[in-house]
Design a binder for these strands. Structure first.
Lengths: 252, 252
DNA sequence: CGCTACGTTGATCGCACTCAAGTATAGTGG
DNA sequence: CCACTATACTTGAGTGCGATCAACGTAGCG
């Protein structure tokens, strides 16, 4: 329709499973936020307990409800976490970037995965048995506290989302969601702050608790007002302050 | 209107702040889920770092946004956690019972409380400086893992709530909320499974992301169908299986 | 016994969902 | 390189769930 809808500026990472391998493992593990305090030897020891796995875009890594014995750490690429509902309406919980983890963390016996994890791009993950991971944390209390902090901040983010869903209309929720994604996946470009991941209207709808149609309407309006630029599977924020004002106060 | 609306069967605990004291502290701390693995000496040592505080019903314990240096453990009574929103619509996050904690857990410097905590009944809480608590966890990795598990299961509960808000209509959300509360605060009585806490239509509305009026309509309907019995500030579940079916499948 | 806050019920309105038709984009194969 | 197809996106019209506004009952408390 307009010149703003050029080709998708999102670079879809092509990470062949082969590239997901041995060389980078120590580097990745050592750089993990929760292993930052470990000595090189401890990292090397922990490394023994992890094994790498590659997935191409679209592949499912864990199915919610399945028996859960592993914890996964994203090494490269992006992973989408989602819930299925009875009504067929999926809910997208989060998009994880390298260094974040998912899977089962709890010690209880018959644990199942509480969410489905899907490779959003080609990804490499490091898997570790839950028990082994807990053993590592038990030996390295600082790491345990770091994991606790991460879980705690995820809890707060999720509570913020409950607040949004409970009290704010669709427009504000979408504005807030775009800002949150930009914070995590944003990349400065001439066109604005591009959200570096393939992101459909349906994905956004599933993140904000609405429908693709409503999402489209709201985003068309935002585009008219010069807040964003978007196309098929991509969004860029062109006026971040105004979008933030919209998210908080509902002022257009 | 009907005979089902007799006097409130909820016993409002009268816990005078004076009763919130020294004798019970060791007992309470030792029984905490996350201190269960500690030796008696370790519990005694930890005890030194806590101090007790009493609040009468309605008093605010922490204000969201305030500078946060403490973590609180509920010793007796109930504490309501809530968020304020710009629009004045409050969101009720949870009702805590003895053994649960709230306040600040993170180490970051300029931390603020992310939620407001209000005494729902008379309560006694044990307060500990965040730093001191973290030091205890660092010395007792098993306790750190236990706290991690608690936080993790709260995260999962909150994610479930996001799913509910995103995908289900008001009636099902209220059904699910009542069941969740009953699981935590339920008490068998002749009239049914009574939710042992003062619980207004507005409280329920704030938990389910709706209005007191809608809550009232839905609950009237449930009462007609024999699923619940309720009155001013109290609710009892009379047909749990049917209510569960309603929550999950939307079938009345 | 009257006051206050909670709860119920009714009428109306509007946001967002649904259903549906049409348009643009990106990848595919000739 | 270009037609072709699949999929994403847009836009419109109609509907309905739940919010809002308002009035009236009712329980509990002083």
């Amino acid at each position: 329709m307009t010149d703003s809808r050029r080709r998708s500026p999102v670079e879809v990472e092509i990470v062949p499973p082969a590239a997901c391998s041995i060389d980078l493992r120590l580097e990745i593990l050592g750089a993990l936020p929760f292993f930052a305090t470990l000595s090189p030897e401890a990292v090397a020891a922990a490394n023994e307990r992890f094994r790498e796995q590659g997935f191409v875009a679209g592949e499912t890594i864990t199915y919610s409800g399945e028996s859960a014995a592993f914890l996964y750490v994203v090494a490269s690429g992006q992973v989408k976490l989602l819930h299925h509902t009875h009504a067929g309406k999926d809910v997208l919980l989060d998009v994880l970037t390298p260094g974040e983890f998912f899977g089962n963390l709890s010690a209880q016996e018959n644990a199942v995965y509480t969410e489905t994890a899907v490779a959003q791009t080609g990804v490499c993950v490091l898997a570790v048995a839950t028990q082994a991971f807990r053993a590592i944390l038990e030996q390295h209390p600082a790491a345990a506290l770091a994991v606790l902090d991460l879980t705690n901040s995820r809890l707060q983010a999720t509570q913020e989302r409950v607040r949004q869903l409970s009290a704010y209309p669709v427009e504000q929720r979408i504005a807030a969601t775009l800002l949150r994604l930009a914070e995590k996946l944003g990349e400065e470009q001439e066109m604005g702050l591009l959200i570096q991941t393939p992101l459909s209207r349906e994905d956004l709808a599933q993140m904000t608790g609405t429908t693709p149609e409503s999402t489209s309407r709201v985003m068309s309006q935002m585009q008219k007002e010069g807040l964003i630029t978007s196309g098929r599977q991509w969004v860029a924020i062109t006026d971040q302050p105004a979008l933030a004002a919209l998210a908080e106060d509902g002022l257009a």
